[in-house]
Amino acid sequence: MAPSTLDNTARVMPDIAAEPRQAQAGVLDWVGMGEIEMPVSLAGDQGRTLSSGARVNAFVNLRRGDVRGIHMSRLYLHVDKALSNEPVTPASIRRLLKDFLESHADLSDRAMVSLRFEHLVRRKALASDNSGWKSYPVSITGVMDRGHFALELGLQAEYSSTCPCSAALARQLIQEQFDADFAAGKPVDREAVLAWLGTEQGIRATPHSQRSLAEVKIRLVPSFKDFPIVEIIDRIEDALKTPVQTAVKRVDEQAFALLNGQNLMFCEDAARRMQAALEQDERISDFWLRASHHESLHPHDAVAVATKGVAGGYTSLPDGLAAR
């Protein structure tokens, strides 16, 4: 009787990827898997563990031109094991990259993994007793290159920016309207002026403001054991002063309007504020940042970029290709 094709007894299965490909030989910088769906956990405050859904990219190089492909399933299984069993830390990223290389010892001497996820933080309202959840895009990228380990933490935070130029132009129009409504040489009644200031006729112009985006990439000092995500976000938002809000009542909206009026910002101002804040953080060995103001005046953004200026570190490319 002929054996069934569904028989699961041990047999040799073809491995096409391991076969030589002489006609198309060549080394490859990176080979792997992109957009792997995985859970990711991070250690939170007060002993809590925070979990999110992540997208993971896992790669190694292929330094042998005579081998057709790598063992992609091994990368997936290593990622699954690492992210399912413990919170993500710099040490766990290093171990994961070593697993990549050990499982491809005959093929690769470089490995890379990147994680992208949304980190939810509960934020208090500015003035009321309310609070709400705010989502921050986070990325973690690790590279092991011939024994050298590099780690990058990327963060994004939205804020409001009110244009200083627009504010000055609006003030000029208000002055002109006051001059027209209150004739020179006549007594000015305080109550009349106070009432006038509360009308649309009095405040005939307002400055334009827009939702803006702070993007930061940092390299932590090697001794750091955890990812200080919330701490770095807090440092950025404290420097900018006008982070977007969650739960908002009228009293919160008024407080937000006051913050915007007290923190008029060009994109250059925002970038310099973040630059100064990050330079004071001893946990950060290098950084790249970009302030993008999504203008309401015109359909293009106003952008400013800054780096720490470390030799051999980040370059100030504005398109996000930040690392040398």
Rank of each mutant, 00 (worst) to 15 (best):
M1Q: 09
A2K: 12
P3K: 08
D7L: 07
T9Y: 12
A10G: 13
D15T: 14
A18N: 08
A18H: 10
A18C: 09
E19Q: 14
E19L: 14
P20L: 00
V27S: 13
V27F: 07
V31L: 14
L42R: 10
R48V: 11
G53E: 09
G53Y: 11
G53T: 11
N57D: 14
N61P: 10
R64F: 07
S73N: 05
R74I: 01
L75A: 04
H78L: 08
A82S: 15
I93Y: 07
R95I: 09
K98L: 10
A105W: 06
A105F: 12
D106K: 13
L107G: 05
S108R: 10
D109T: 09
S114N: 04
R123W: 02
R123L: 03
A125E: 01
A127W: 01
G132P: 00
T141D: 01
T141A: 13
F149M: 13
F149E: 03
L151N: 04
L153H: 04
G154Q: 01
G154S: 06
S161Q: 00
S161P: 07
T162M: 14
Q172E: 12
L173D: 04
L173A: 14
I174Q: 14
I174G: 07
D179A: 15
A183G: 13
A183K: 15
V193A: 07
L194E: 11
G198I: 08
S209I: 03
R211W: 00
S212L: 03
E215T: 05
E215W: 01
I218W: 06
I218R: 08
V221F: 11
V221A: 15
V221C: 15
P222A: 03
F224Y: 12
K225Q: 05
I229F: 05
E231N: 11
E231Y: 04
R235M: 04
I236N: 06
A239G: 05
V244Y: 00
Q245V: 02
V251P: 08
V251C: 11
F256D: 09
L258Y: 12
L258P: 13
L258H: 14
L259C: 13
G261I: 07
F266N: 05
C267W: 05
Q275L: 10
A276K: 14
Q280P: 11
E282H: 15
W288D: 00
W288K: 00
S292H: 03
P299R: 09
D301W: 05
A304C: 03
T307I: 03
K308F: 00
T315V: 14
S316D: 11
S316A: 15
G320L: 04
